[in-house]
Measured scan of single mutants.
Amino acid sequence: YKELDVHLRRMESGFGFRILGGDEPGQPILIGAVIAMGSADRDGRLHPGDELVYVDGIPVAGKTHRYVIDLMHHAARNGQVNLTVRRK
C-alpha cells in the first residue's frame, strides 16, 4: 500500500468527490466518483477506489458512512480538509 496526504480547499460545489462504503461494520471507506473540474479533480491525487484512512487527522477505518459524512460536513464549514488515503 502507498499512503498519500491530500489537502483540498472547498469550492462552491464542495470538495469534488463522493464517498462509498462504511455501510457494514468494518467495511472500508472508499473514494467513489471524482467530479470533473472539482477540487479533488484539479488537485489530481485522489482516485476512485482509494481507501480513506484519515479525515483531518481522525481515523475513519471501520467507521460508519454517516460518521465520515459528518466529518466532511465539518471540514466543509472550515473550507478545507486534510485527507490521508491508501492505494494498492
Rank of each mutant, 00 (worst) to 15 (best):
Y1H: 06
Y1W: 08
Y1A: 05
Y1E: 06
K2Q: 09
K2C: 08
K2G: 03
K2P: 00
K2R: 07
K2H: 06
K2I: 13
E3K: 09
E3T: 11
E3I: 15
E3G: 04
E3H: 10
E3A: 06
E3C: 11
L4A: 03
L4H: 07
L4I: 15
D5H: 15
D5T: 14
D5S: 15
D5Y: 11
V6F: 05
V6Q: 01
V6P: 03
H7F: 15
H7T: 14
H7A: 11
L8P: 03
L8K: 02
L8N: 02
L8E: 02
L8A: 03
L8H: 03
L8Y: 02
L8R: 02
L8D: 02
R9V: 14
R9M: 12
R9N: 12
R9D: 14
R10L: 07
R10M: 09
R10G: 10
R10D: 06
R10S: 15
R10N: 10
R10F: 08
M11Y: 14
M11V: 09
M11S: 14
M11Q: 15
M11T: 15
M11R: 13
M11H: 14
M11W: 09
E12R: 09
E12N: 14
E12P: 12
E12K: 12
E12Q: 12
S13L: 04
S13M: 07
S13G: 15
S13C: 09
S13Q: 11
G14S: 06
F15A: 01
F15Q: 03
F15G: 01
F15V: 00
F15C: 02
F15L: 01
G16L: 01
G16A: 00
G16N: 02
F17W: 02
F17Y: 01
F17G: 00
F17A: 00
R18H: 15
R18C: 08
R18I: 06
R18F: 05
I19C: 06
I19Q: 01
I19M: 07
I19K: 03
I19P: 02
L20A: 14
L20E: 15
L20V: 15
L20I: 15
L20C: 15
L20P: 02
L20F: 10
G21H: 07
G21W: 06
G21E: 07
G21N: 05
G21P: 08
G21S: 06
G21D: 06
G21K: 08
G22I: 05
G22Q: 08
G22E: 07
G22F: 07
G22C: 07
G22L: 03
D23C: 11
D23M: 11
D23L: 11
D23E: 14
D23Q: 12
D23P: 03
D23R: 13
E24Q: 13
E24F: 09
E24T: 13
E24L: 09
E24G: 09
E24K: 14
P25K: 08
P25Y: 08
P25I: 09
P25F: 07
P25L: 08
G26Y: 06
G26D: 09
G26Q: 07
G26M: 05
Q27L: 08
Q27T: 12
P28V: 05
P28T: 06
P28R: 09
I29P: 07
I29G: 02
I29C: 09
I29L: 11
I29K: 06
I29T: 06
L30K: 14
L30Y: 15
L30H: 13
L30W: 11
L30T: 15
L30R: 13
L30P: 00
L30C: 12
I31S: 00
I31P: 00
I31M: 03
I31C: 04
G32E: 11
G32H: 09
G32P: 03
G32M: 02
G32D: 14
G32Y: 04
G32L: 03
A33C: 09
A33Q: 13
A33G: 11
A33P: 13
V34I: 14
V34F: 05
V34L: 14
V34E: 05
V34N: 05
V34S: 04
V34G: 04
V34M: 09
I35E: 15
I35L: 13
A36G: 08
A36D: 10
M37S: 15
M37A: 07
M37L: 11
M37E: 15
M37P: 08
M37I: 04
M37G: 15
M37D: 15
G38M: 04
G38N: 05
G38L: 02
S39C: 08
S39E: 06
S39N: 05
S39K: 04
S39W: 02
S39F: 03
A40S: 05
A40F: 03
A40T: 04
A40D: 04
A40I: 04
A40W: 04
D41T: 04
R42W: 05
R42S: 08
R42Y: 07
R42Q: 12
R42N: 08
R42E: 07
D43A: 04
D43E: 07
D43K: 04
D43H: 04
D43V: 04
D43S: 08
G44W: 03
R45M: 06
R45Q: 09
R45V: 07
R45D: 06
R45N: 11
R45T: 10
R45W: 04
L46F: 02
L46E: 01
L46V: 07
L46H: 00
L46P: 01
H47C: 13
H47T: 13
H47I: 13
H47M: 14
P48M: 10
P48E: 15
P48N: 07
P48K: 12
G49Q: 06
G49Y: 06
G49D: 06
G49M: 08
G49V: 00
G49E: 06
D50H: 00
D50W: 01
D50F: 02
D50E: 02
D50Y: 01
D50I: 01
D50A: 01
E51D: 02
L52I: 10
L52C: 02
V53N: 04
V53H: 08
Y54F: 12
Y54I: 14
V55D: 03
V55Q: 02
V55S: 00
V55E: 01
V55R: 00
V55W: 03
D56W: 00
D56N: 07
D56M: 02
G57W: 05
G57N: 11
G57K: 13
G57H: 07
I58N: 12
I58S: 10
I58M: 12
I58E: 11
P59D: 12
P59K: 15
P59F: 12
P59I: 09
V60Q: 00
V60G: 00
V60F: 00
A61T: 12
A61D: 09
A61C: 11
A61Q: 13
A61P: 05
A61G: 11
G62I: 02
G62E: 08
G62T: 05
G62W: 04
K63D: 02
K63W: 05
K63I: 03
K63P: 00
T64W: 03
T64N: 11
T64V: 08
T64F: 04
T64M: 10
T64P: 10
H65M: 10
H65Y: 14
H65D: 08
H65K: 15
H65Q: 13
H65W: 09
R66S: 14
R66I: 08
R66Y: 08
R66T: 12
R66L: 10
Y67M: 11
Y67I: 08
V68Q: 01
V68R: 00
V68K: 03
V68T: 07
V68Y: 03
V68D: 02
I69C: 13
I69L: 14
I69R: 13
I69Q: 14
I69P: 01
D70M: 10
L71S: 02
L71E: 03
L71F: 03
L71D: 01
L71Q: 07
M72P: 00
M72Q: 01
M72I: 15
M72K: 02
H73D: 15
H73E: 15
H73W: 07
H73F: 07
H73Q: 13
H73G: 14
H74R: 14
H74M: 13
H74A: 14
H74D: 13
A75I: 04
A75T: 04
A75M: 04
A76N: 14
A76Q: 13
A76V: 11
A76I: 09
R77G: 12
R77L: 12
R77C: 12
R77K: 14
R77E: 15
R77A: 13
R77T: 12
N78F: 08
N78C: 11
N78D: 08
N78M: 11
G79P: 02
G79W: 07
G79L: 05
G79R: 06
G79E: 08
G79H: 07
Q80R: 10
Q80A: 12
Q80S: 13
Q80D: 10
Q80T: 12
Q80F: 14
Q80V: 12
Q80K: 12
V81A: 03
V81I: 13
V81G: 02
V81S: 00
N82D: 14
N82C: 10
N82L: 10
N82T: 11
L83R: 00
L83S: 01
L83F: 03
L83N: 02
L83P: 00
L83D: 02
L83C: 04
L83H: 02
T84M: 08
T84R: 15
T84C: 08
T84Y: 06
T84P: 02
T84W: 03
T84Q: 08
V85W: 01
V85G: 01
V85A: 03
V85P: 00
V85I: 13
V85S: 00
R86Y: 08
R86A: 06
R87V: 03
K88E: 07
